[in-house]
Each structure stands twice: as structure tokens, then as C-alpha cells.
Design a protein around this nucleic acid. Structure first.
Lengths: 204, 204, 204, 204
DNA sequence: TATGAATGAGAGTTCATTCAT
DNA sequence: CATGAATGAACTCTCATTCAT
């Protein structure tokens, strides 16, 4: 990424800060990560951070925003591809999320469900609105899948929760850098969820 | 609960503190909950907490320990009941966890997966050991279920992750006090997981 | 001042802090006085201040409030003494203010006109309301004095400003501890103002 | 004001900065005004200020110096006009000060009594020397006025304080931009002070 | 001349914890 | 058992200033 203008440099630095902060937040937690360590990871003093962001919280917000918007983009792409059936759509979504988490300097889980608590009310509202849109999108796919017989009939809301949970919150015990295993697990998740979606019969 | 001896009173107070802290940790997060607010919830001053616990971290540890041990107890009971098949065992486990989260002054999710990060290394090791034992237990049940044909053949480890994830990390959007919905959702989770376990065919 | 109860001690400490802060604010200015130096003057660490006041600004507010209320009290006493004519009242007020400034560990000028800028909007409003009441009181005395012929006819508002200015804002070059000179100057101020009030003829 | 040389431009910029800073210092206070906001008022970045002044304090110093020197000039003019009596001289001085405060982009009070505290010791000494010269000048006029019977006999020093106070420290309640009222008040101040000077009889 | 990047020092404040009572 | 006073360490953030460009 060649940097020519000052503007370019500024943007580059901003993203560099976000990337470093991201890793630290993931490893250490938002609250326990202090400004000093973020700055150190960027090889400059704490005060310089404030030339790029106005507060620690803003750094978090930018990270979550990027995640959320990226996810929205993936979802929209999938939603609009008319040649895919419901199953294919859900599979594509899961893979999109996995790729996103992985396509970073260091692979990290998505943070944006975990740290919305730490945002200012306004920022939280902003993120939650995106999240709700995502919900709606996924719910729509599931609904259609149930209508056209691809999926078993079940509570739409519950099914959406379950999908979300499996997609985002998977407890990861295996090494974060082991891409092969990650990929296999992603594949497994798809199959697992599909099996559930197709065969789940709410007892009575 | 009649309190007669000093010892009794002390234990009663300890549990009262733990219960109050538990709710606060769940609502506000461990780091963001300060000693003062725990004390206030107990209707006494911060200093008095140190008559019962030696640190904030110890309070957290006791909470997680209680959770973990309770869960172990549930798991063991289930594991040793020879008259249950694998499906029945897993269902029983899920319900046990749900009941545990619910059978409190205020229903809260289990904390012990979320805040192990905040423990001292030793305490963390202690908790993780319990967690590993739980893993082993669940993994064992799943293995048997696959052997005897109850469940489809799939990666044991992955299946355990998936089970854990669904059981513990469910994103909770619905009102925490709505027991009816909670129960229905628990039921749904059981069905969902079973559908997956029985029908999952790892692609290729 | 014998201290018996905890409550007593707390109040004593509070006032001790206020007195020390007062001197520092006067000597060094509010902004340039840091919490550390206030604490040092009280012989304890900075954190302990927060057991008594919630912020530096609150310390300032309490000081200004005490000043303002004390002044109100003086003014009211004077206003209600029916046996005094306007001149006597104004003289009494000036002396009251001077005594207040002087009757302290270290004599300081009144701060409450100087640092209202540094208050929070709410606190500023509170103080300004008191100030307005004082204005009204002084203006009333002046008005009566003009009506009954004690004072020359002049613009009420201007006369009030002038009185206030002379009373409160006197530039003090002489040593702050030289009580004799202070007293003489106070006396002079009274005479000076009275001469003006009685003889001022707005030109044209 | 046509600017031709670099030197001209530099001087123009310097004065522009001083004027902007002056307003901010008056509105917000010296300590609370930061370099960034001064720069913003000048429509450039903070760093550029240091091409014209070596520090924030130097900016303040230049402002106070200009004020003080201007005042000295006024005083000298008045002092040397042999055709004026003491009263006329004092009246002229008061008006000169008022005009100075008013003949600015935005009318502001004189700052130089208020912020000498914020100067470096050397700069403070410099300003105080000027102030002392002013004192001497005013005191001289007053002395003569008392000698020749224009003014009542009173303490020279006190009379000088009082004059200074009334001239400079007037609490400004009225709108800063209301020139008509300002002028009327200036007139009133003259009359008020003269009434005092001519009639003040120190009570024994 | 003007700028954005970077910094060191220091600010006010929070907080878990200790201790004497 | 319970408390209020006191503390040291840490935190986020501000600010005047420097420097390379």
C-alpha cells in the first residue's frame, strides 16, 4: 500500500491503530487494555493516539463499526443473489463471517457482539441498528426456506438466535492460527446447522 | 433459614454477597462493577466486604466455582444414570444448565465461561480443570451416542464445541424474566441440537 | 473545637479543606492550583479529598457558596435594622464584608466574584441568583437614600455597580496581613463612597 | 492596510494573533484558553503560532505590554498638558482608558491587571514597573489637586487605589457591545469619582 | 509560511485495598 | 461486624511545544 499524500498516511495510521487495538481487545478485553499498550503496539506514545481518535471508546466504536458494516455487506450480497436457495445462502453467510475474522493480520473473533456494552449510548444505538438489520435479513432467509420446504417448520425467532449463536459465538479452543482446522470447523458448522434446520421438529 | 451461630451468619452473608455480585457482574460486567456498588447492593460499606473475601477477584472466583461445581454435579448425575440413552442425557444436561441459570434471585446467564479471563492464573487453572472434566464428560456421551447409532458420525471435538456453544452462549434477546419463553427456548435448543446430532453429515 | 463524633470530624475536615483550598485559590488562582497541592496543604494524599468532595470544582463551589451566603446574611441583618439610615446601612455593609474577608486563618479577598467562571453552569446559576439578590438589596437601600434626600439623585444601576466595585474589587497592594492598614482603608472606602453618593451630580 | 514586504506581513499576522488571543483571554480566561483555539481563531494550525511567538505566555505578555504602554502614553499626554487642572486630567484619563478598551474589534476590558499572575517573573517585573510609573503619575495629579484645593485632603495612596479601582475593575454587567450605555457609564464614573475626590472627609 | 505527527509532563479522578476504631 | 479515613497505583485524556517537511 503505497502512501503518497498526507491524507493517505493518516488513513493508513488510523487503520493500523484499529488493527492493533483489535488484537489487544480480543486478547486482553476492552476494559483491561489500556491506552498505553495500544500506543506501544503502534510504536508511539499515548498522546499521539488522540491525533487520530478522540477517545478509547471511539477506537472501539470504529472497530465494531467496520465489523458490522462488513458483515452487512456480506449479508446483502448473499441476500441479493437470486440463484441461491436458502441453504446456500446461509452457508455463504457463515463462510463470509469466517473469512472476515480470518483475513486479518492476526485472526480474531468478531468483537462486535461482545463489546457493545462498552460503547456510549449513541454509538451503541448505531451498532444495534445494524445488528437488527442483520437479524432481519437472516430471519428473512430462514422464513423463505421454511416456506419453500427446504427447512423444517420451527419458531422463526428461535431459529434466528440459534443460527446467530452458532455463527458468531463459537467457543474456540483450538489455536487461533491453525487455518486448516478453522476451515474444517467452519465447514462442520455449516453442515451442523443445516442438519438442524432441515430436521428439527419441535417436540409437540 | 434460621441463623444461629456466628459461623452460620458468616456463611449466609457470604452467599448474600455472592448473589448480589453475581447479578451485578452479569448486568454490568466484572471490570465495570466496582466494590462500592457490590457493597451498596449488600447495604453496607466497601470495607466490610473484606471481612468475608480477600479481594474482588476472590468474589468472582467463588461465583465461578459454584457455577462450575454445580454444573459438574448435574453432569455427573446424568452420566451415571444408566437408564438414559445419549439423547436423553444431553437433553437432561441442557435443562439442568437452564434451571441453574434460572433458579436464582434474578435469572442470569452462567458467567463462568465469560470471566475466566479475570481470574488469577491459579484460579483460572482451577476452573479450567473443571471445564475440561465437563468437556470429557460430554464428549464421552457424544462418543457413545455415535457408536451406538443414535447420532450421526462426525468429528467428536467439533460436536462437543457445537454442543457447548448452543448450551451456554446463546445470545439472549428476550426478557430475562420471561420464564415461559425461556422454557420454550430451552426445549427448542434440545430439539435443534438433537436434529443436528442425528442428521449431520459432514460434507465429503 | 472539640471533636467527638465521626460526623463532627468529617465536618471539621471538610472545612479544613475548604480553608486551605481558599488560600491556595487566592494565592495561585483556581486553575493553577492542583489537587495535589490542596491535598498536601491538608497533609494527606490527593485521593482522600474525594472522600469529602466529589471534584475540584465542588470545592470551589462550596467556598463561593459560603462567601455568598455569609454576605447575604450580613446584608439582611443590615437591611432589617430600621434604626439605620441609608448611609449607616451602606457603611455597615462595607465593614461586614471587610470583616468577613479578614476573619480567616489568612486574610484573603472574597473569591466569589472572581471564579464564578470556573463553576459548572448549575453551580454558577446558583451563585448568580444569590448575587442578584444582593444587588437588589443594595439597590433598594440606595433608592431609599436618594428618595429621602440622603444621597444625590443619580442612576440607580450605575450607583449600585460603583458601590459593588469599591466594596469588593479593591486592588490590594498593601500587605495582606497588615490589619491596621486594612482597617484604615476600609474606613476610607466608606468615606469615599459616601462623599460620592451625596455629591455626585451627573454632568448635564 | 496594504502589505508589501515579508516583514510587513509578519507584523500584520502577529497583531492579528494578538487581537484574537485578546478576545479569547477576555472571554474564557488565560489558563482556560488553549493554543489550539487561538490558532483556530486565526484560521491556521497550532504549530504555526510558534513561527510568530515562542510561547503562549509570550502572547499574553505582548498583549499586556501593548495595553500598559498605551495607557502610559495616554497618561503622559494628559500629564503634560499644562492647560488642564487636576479634575480635567483625571477625567481625561478615565475616558482614555475607556476608549482604549472600546476601540478594538470586540470591546474588551483591559486585561493587564488580571493576568500579570500568569507571566514569567521577568515579564511580570517588566509590567509591574510600568504599572508603578502609572501609579506615580496618577498619584502626582491627585497630590497636586489636593495641594491646590481642587480635591479634599485625604490619604494619597488610598485615593490612588480608589481611582484605579473605579477606573479599571468595574464589574461589567451590561452588554459589552452597547456603546451608548458604556459611554454613559464612563461619564458617570467621572462624575462619581470627582464627587468623591472633592468631598471626601476622612472621618477623623 | 504553514502543517500534521509526535511527545513528555501533568492534570483530575477512580478504585481496590488497608487500618484503626 | 461494620465503618470512615486514608492511600498508592493506575487510568484516560489534555496541552504546550517540537520537528520534519
Amino acid at each position: 500500500m503505497a502512501i503518497k499524500t498526507r491524507r493517505d498516511f493518516s488513513n493508513y495510521q488510523k487503520q493500523m491503530i484499529l488493527d492493533n487495538a483489535r488484537v489487544l481487545f480480543e486478547e486482553t478485553g476492552y476494559e483491561k487494555t489500556n491506552i498505553k499498550s495500544i500506543a506501544k503496539a503502534c510504536s508511539f506514545g499515548p498522546a499521539n493516539l488522540y491525533n487520530y481518535f478522540s477517545s478509547k471508546e471511539e477506537i472501539l466504536f470504529e472497530i465494531l463499526k467496520q465489523e458490522a458494516e462488513q458483515l452487512v455487506k456480506s449479508l446483502n450480497e448473499v441476500e441479493n443473489s437470486n440463484d441461491l436457495n436458502a441453504e446456500q445462502k446461509l452457508r455463504a453467510i457463515i463462510k463470509g463471517v469466517a473469512d472476515f475474522s480470518i483475513g486479518r493480520k492476526r485472526r480474531t473473533r468478531l468483537l462486535y457482539m461482545k463489546y457493545t456494552v462498552d460503547l456510549t449510548p449513541e454509538h451503541r444505538k448505531y451498532i444495534n441498528k445494524i445488528r437488527d438489520a442483520q437479524d432481519e435479513c437472516i430471519r428473512g432467509i430462514i422464513r423463505k426456506g421454511m416456506k419453500n420446504g427446504e427447512f423444517a417448520k420451527m419458531d422463526e425467532t428461535f431459529a434466528t438466535y440459534a443460527f446467530y449463536t452458532m455463527m458468531l459465538r463459537t467457543r474456540v479452543w483450538f489455536a487461533v492460527d491453525d487455518k486448516a482446522t478453522q476451515d474444517k470447523y467452519t465447514e462442520f458448522k455449516c453442515d451442523y446447522i443445516m442438519a438442524a434446520m432441515k430436521n428439527c421438529k419441535t417436540s409437540k
